[in-house]
Design a protein around this nucleic acid. Sequence first.
DNA 1: TGATTAATTTTTGTATACATTTTTATCTAT
DNA 2: ATAGATAAAAATGTATACAAAAATTAATCA
Lengths: 210, 210
Amino acid sequence: MEISKKIKEDILNNRLARGVPLRQVKLSNRYDVSRIPIRDALLSLKGEGWLVPHGKAGVMIPALNWKEAEDLYLMRAGLECLLFGMAFDKITNEDIRHAKAFFAELNKESLTLVEKGELNWFFHNALYQAADRPTLLRVVEGLNKQAVRYLGFQYGPLGYRETSQKQHEALLLLIESKDKKLALTYLREHIEKAGKLLTQYLKSLEIKEF
Amino acid sequence: MEISKKIKEDILNNRLARGVPLRQVKLSNRYDVSRIPIRDALLSLKGEGWLVPHGKAGVMIPALNWKEAEDLYLMRAGLECLLFGMAFDKITNEDIRHAKAFFAELNKESLTLVEKGELNWFFHNALYQAADRPTLLRVVEGLNKQAVRYLGFQYGPLGYRETSQKQHEALLLLIESKDKKLALTYLREHIEKAGKLLTQYLKSLEIKEF
DNA sequence: TGATTAATTTTTGTATACATTTTTATCTAT
DNA sequence: ATAGATAAAAATGTATACAAAAATTAATCA
């Protein structure tokens, strides 16, 4: 497995301390490679929002917070609906077949959090593919991949997995029945609901801390 | 100047060939550094959308195209208005002062394209600062920085500089008069108009090529 | 001649060593 | 004590050397 993916897993499972600088030599020992691939991974992860600067040169794992979660889901709702609207009339049976395949895989046990996040994105991606808007798609992909950082809460204390899968199923049915308006509204709600649940939970946590 | 900024300048001024792989050794000779900082720069630029993969390992400068420009401005319009709406009531006189300073600098001659792009972003950023939404701001920043890749057209054949500055001035007046609704509409038009002009021009270019 | 495979060359990826910067610890003066 | 300056350390940044992978060229066979 690639270094940056390993680091992501370790961040999600709280195996790396948040808020303190990540040291390149420590990581190079941990993952048994030299500092060069570590540097590459840290640079990528910083670009993807998984790490933030610490001091003048270092990086650290940022604390999760409700405001970021809210922003991510606000942006997802807006941009994914835009993209889905562009795709809708062009969605093929092949696209739906792909989406269903990812949907099925999401029910499997024994997936790491990063893998669950990937599959969730693959599902949505299958529905957006037909839009043929690479740039918009890439930004939406970035947002989805950042949202993965919060998946620990959604698959853990919030128990959102079942609800999410039910909504995915319903969405597929709406697409197959060619009801664009309803499908768009449903997608927006699917995203907004997930965002609200997460944001609210994070807010309650931050209050508890004091 | 930083390597990645130099590369950006050279991309904007068409001093590096598009579509063919960028070779690390060539770049390391060109900028007179070793391959390590070149690799770092390429990785960052790829993350920022300035470069795209070429083959299995290389990167190249992608061709500019109307679809990407349209996407970038669609996203900017949506997200910046969202952000501006969150900021509006909290904008301070200090914020406006900052925005005016960047506005003034934009009138200077002898700015490189990258610098013009930076100043344009600083102007907008000054207005969004008050929203206090770091994540949303960071995504919007990314979109603005990608849009810089198209600045050569806007400041060149499209002669958009004057129009843009007039609109910036008008926007500042609307903010000072606390007319939120009108200011929001105006910002949206400011972005959408620039996008439409650019997109239309790029479309006409692509037709001519055949 | 055209397509496949093999050999060669080129290019990227990684490790190690060194330079520079940043951080931490120590010392001094008020 | 505390703030500031200075010295030590630890960390990141960069260069060079080598390994692995990719792309190109050459060779082989249908």
